[in-house]
Design a protein around this nucleic acid. Structure first.
Lengths: 231, 231
DNA sequence: TGTACATCAGTGAACGCGCGTTCACTGATGTAC
DNA sequence: TGTACATCAGTGAACGCGCGTTCACTGATGTAC
């Protein structure tokens, strides 16, 4: 796929890089990203610490790479849903809403699959860290898929007649929806509600705030999805 | 208030403990909780590192104390709103909804006042850390205030006739609402929506996920509050 | 096919750092008679 | 009011640890003729 005709050395390099990242994820799963240690990874791979500097310039580069991979993985999962459904532009509202529901399920599965990976993206920000531009670009890809579905889900002509005040604000502040310059404000609002509500449930769930409460987080999640795709 | 007739030494002890915590918060604001260092705090106070062991058994005890204080502070802010409003039990729905909106504003102000404090409670969990029971008790106090308001806000008899499936689940899983054994399932659901939706917006906002998008998070927050207190 | 050279993966020693925590000790503050 | 003793805050040295990162070097792998 990417850059064919690799020399054996290049292939090996990439292979080792992958193994480093794999061990890094294992370590993050155990003690969190802030405790990520290059030396510990090296030891786990049976190498000496300095050897890793052949593959990553420093600790920060490794972490950035992990964040990038996490975003890429989630974006690909989103895109797969977008491709699977019918075109969208001509689809009826029902199809758009079904696609929204599918995106929600993909998001939840992805989050539960590896909570630490989820928190690497959406958790407490690392002080001083700023994502490079190519990572924000991946985030935009995801938003684009989401906006697709939200637009297809229907403009939801406000039953009362007057659109919500927030939609007025969005009509004038839509830089973030650059990929969909024609999406109605109600679709923009729906996308933001989708994102923030589902993140709210997921991050509380993954952080363990529901444990001991005796309720099933999956049902709360489903209820929120319902609220987003109904009416 | 708590334990009068302190000796001067006890008073001094408590004073130093407070100063330690104050410096700890400053440090957290700068580099996050995971980088909290006892030695650095001591240096900032003009003392040697080991001196702090007169006041805290170890680093973990200090962090637990900070978490406890954070919860206490938010709970007190919630309780102040609850006390301010009219009784509640007899109040009309409008009053309940106004109280919900007030709680939302208090939550947002509290979060913006010190984002790191917010993340200490609601951010990426520290691997292996389990909150002692007295802290979960404080969380219950908050939930109780919230349930008060949600109950007063009205049972919201489902317009379509059939209550949402999730409310059926809640009717049978309400241990977490122990303080309000008679609250209708719709009130329980409202409380969970309040908590998770507002947390969703706030945590995305505080983590900086809206920066560069060109929209005003305060308005998204307000729109979500609106959705919770309308209809 | 074989030799000469360049590339590059990995090692081990070392640097400097800051961490949490313990310990024996000094000196000030409070208490009892 | 003054003396004898107990309490406790704070110090400085020390222990052991792991971290990221650099450096000079060895040995294997690939390339050019």
């Amino acid at each position: 796929m990417t850059g064919s005709a690799k020399t054996p050395r290049e292939r090996y390099r990439q292979q080792v890089r992958e193994e480093v990242k794999e061990k890094a994820w294992q370590q993050i799963a155990g003690t969190g990203a802030s405790a990520l240690s290059l030396n510990a990874i090296a030891k786990q791979m049976g190498m000496s610490g300095p050897a890793l500097y052949r593959y990553f310039a420093n600790r920060d580069e490794l972490i950035t790479e992990l964040i990038r991979d996490a975003y890429r993985s989630l974006a690909d999962a989103f895109i797969a849903v977008g491709d699977g459904g019918d075109g969208g532009d001509g689809g009826d509202r029902g199809a758009g809403r079904a696609r929204l529901a599918a995106l929600a399920q993909v998001l939840r599965r992805w989050a539960l699959e590896d909570p630490h990976r989820y928190f690497l993206i959406y958790g407490t920000p690392v002080p001083g860290y700023h994502a490079p531009q190519d990572i924000t670009a991946i985030a935009s890809e995801m938003m684009s898929v989401l906006l697709d579905a939200c637009t297809a889900a229907g403009p939801d002509p406000a039953p009362g007649g007057e659109p919500h005040a927030f939609e007025g604000h969005l009509a004038g502040h839509r830089e973030w929806a650059g990929s969909h310059p024609d999406a109605p404000p109600s679709a923009l609002r729906l996308a933001l509600a989708f994102w923030s509500r589902l993140h709210g449930v997921l991050s509380l769930e993954l952080a363990g705030h529901f444990t001991g409460m005796g309720l099933d987080p999956a049902l709360l999640f489903a209820a929120e999805v319902d609220g987003l795709t109904t009416r």
